[in-house]
């Protein structure tokens, strides 16, 4: 199936988000990071279409996620682009497509938990928001509190539910 055919599989959307150029068979990771399983509770009108392993000129094969009637938060988009640099995010408003240029954030707060059990951010009942500094050159994050370093590839397993 070529790129044009894959576009026919899912209709165009008036309002929403298209997450394109996801590495093949990784859409479930993106879905978990965005907590799309919770979307039905938040946005009754939203719907999600997932294409997997479709042809791509740039990647050879790719996954695509189309979310109708919901815009992915830009900070979450930035995290996705950390994990999968190939990802492109398009916001659809009134049928018009605008491409989002992700920023690699200097700090990520709240979305990722620290894997170090003895970190204060995992302290029972302590009101600590986990924070990580981005080490772009090393493709890793460093915990602001305990200095533990995690690779970008570990992030999906550490995303808070």
């Amino acid at each position: 199936m070529n790129d044009a055919d894959s576009k026919m599989l899912v209709r165009k959307i008036e309002e929403g988000t298209v997450i394109d150029h996801i590495p093949d068979w990784k859409a479930d990771v993106v879905s978990a990071v965005l907590r799309l399983a919770n979307l039905s509770r938040l946005e009754a009108d939203a719907s999600v279409a997932i294409l997997q392993n479709v042809a791509s000129k740039t990647l050879g094969r790719k996954d695509v996620i189309k979310i109708d009637r919901w815009h992915v938060d830009e900070r979450e988009a930035d995290i996705l682009c950390l994990i999968f640099p190939s990802i492109t995010i398009n916001y659809i408003n009134d049928w018009k497509v605008s491409k989002y240029a992700p920023q690699v954030p200097d700090m990520i707060e709240g979305r990722i938990r620290c894997p170090e059990v003895t970190c204060i951010s995992n302290g029972e009942r302590e009101p600590v928001t986990p924070k990580f500094a981005t080490l772009k050159r090393d493709r890793s994050l460093q915990c602001h509190y305990c200095d533990t370093v995690i690779d970008f590839e570990e992030v999906p397993g550490l995303v808070k539910a």
């Binding site: 170090e116 003895t118 970190c119 204060i120 951010s121 995992n122 302290g123 029972e124 009942r125 302590e126 009101p127 600590v128 915990c143 602001h144 509190y145 305990c146 200095d147």
Partner: peptide, 29 residues
């Protein structure tokens, strides 16, 4: 919690804290 302990002693007029804690990052927090 560490948080509440700090708040309590702030209320008593602490001018400085010296903290030893088992959790990494406790002093930064």
């Amino acid at each position: 919690t560490l948080h509440d302990t700090i708040r309590m002693f702030e209320g008593y007029g602490a001018d400085c804290f010296v903290i030893r804690h088992g959790r990494m990052g406790a002093a930064r927090f």
